[in-house]
Design a protein around this nucleic acid. Structure first.
Lengths: 228, 228
DNA sequence: AAGACAGTTCGGTGCACACCGAAGAGTGCC
DNA sequence: GGCACTCTTCGGTGTGCACCGAACTGTCTT
């Protein structure tokens, strides 16, 4: 256990892993940039992480694209982040990140929690610490958005999993259905990735769509959450 | 994130934390013993872990009893262990640990998985990566064992949660109901804690009871699991 | 074939920190 | 009060390892 934790325990490697929780595959040079170390040092770090089964890569020409090796790794990192965040003063280095961000492959932050809330309020979703489920009305509702719930359900991975949000300290939707919702939001250009970050930008079309679909009024305008 | 992971990343501290995943509260001296370092060194480690919100302690006379600070910490450690175990060759340092052990406050290892399997097979329990639930017939069944399912359900903590077993690579029951089952097994003297370890010993009464109740024939006799 | 660029390997430097011995503070028992 | 015991604080030592510069391999471009 200590070997794995020690790998995550290095500042530079932790920065690289945080960047990869976005689910994207990044090249060694990009990772060097986010970790603020030279390519030589990055290379050492990456080979250790691959050796330990935390990352995998595939080579395309002279580029090497690194990504998290498994969902177990992603879950481990979320676990560490949750403990780390629980200690921190409620000041976020990046308020954009608290507003809307990507968490491996699904939406998180105020936006992720707001979507989950809206679905729950309207009887489309059940979500608790033990797990989650989409109701029949939810299946119909999401179909109108262009999401194939039955298809998601058939996939091997967890279908609907609660994910504890480290900034909001509440649950948002993960699993196949969480990924499907996020994918549709990208496709419809409701949200854009902000370069070099897990943060997301909500487009004007997104503001409209989110209000019309989920009744979400500008997450940006919401006060910093009021719990604890 | 890196600070928290770095704390777990030290060999001695990781040994202490592993010992505490058993859910028991241990004194500084006991932790010094499991970590194989002097009391002075242990004291430093413990104060760092408390400072970081990973451990808490309560003082009783001249003793200080340390325990994990929260369920989030426990979940983080399980996550790290899962990733660490996924890499290891399928040789366990301690086969007793693979057979039956305590995982925070519930049963794990071959025994934990076998109990979950039996309950599922008989329609008493639903358990998947997304969560779990006890059925009506399960409620009746567990009541006969002396477990108050409704009472467990009312508790604030997660009621029935899947926990990925690092030795079996399959799910066993965690959450309030998992803790309740474990507690009853202790009360009925089906299993005993083995000193200084998370491992459990199955008593002769336990062998009988487990066979009669769950149809489990000696987990000790089972072959080392056949996956991967 | 030459140059540009991505990534790796090697060798050396410097710092952070785990560790222990010695000494001190607080508690319990007789 | 005196002694035993648990735990902590302080100071000094040793080492593991992150880091970089320099040099090398491999791929793409022109």
């Amino acid at each position: 256990m200590s070997e794995v934790a020690a790998l995550v325990g290095d500042r530079a490697r932790a920065e690289m892993l945080s960047a990869l929780v976005s689910g994207r595959a990044l090249t060694a040079k990009e990772l060097a940039y986010v970790a603020k170390v030279t390519p030589q040092t990055t290379s050492e770090h990456l080979s250790k992480l691959v050796e330990a089964g935390i990352l995998t890569f595939n080579t395309q020409g002279r580029f090497r694209y690194f990504r998290l090796a498994s969902a177990a790794v992603s879950q481990m990192l979320e676990g560490i982040m949750t403990v780390a965040a629980s200690r921190r003063v409620p000041t976020f280095r990046d308020p954009t990140l608290a507003r809307a961000r990507i968490c491996y492959d699904h939406l998180a932050g105020q936006l992720g929690v707001a979507i989950a809330d809206s679905l729950i309020r309207n009887g489309h979703l059940l979500l608790g610490p033990d797990g989650g489920e989409v109701t029949e009305s939810g299946e119909t509702f999401l179909a109108k958005l262009g999401i194939d719930v039955k298809g998601s359900r058939r996939r091997r991975r967890a279908f609907c999993r609660p994910c504890l949000d480290w900034s909001e300290r509440r649950y948002h939707i993960a699993g196949a259905i969480g990924a499907a919702v996020a994918e549709r939001c990208f496709e419809m250009k409701w949200v854009n990735r902000i370069e070099e970050s897990r943060a997301l930008h909500i487009t004007p079309a997104g503001e409209k769509g989110l209000l019309a679909t989920f009744g979400i009024k500008r997450v940006a305008a919401e006060k910093v959450s009021s719990h604890q």
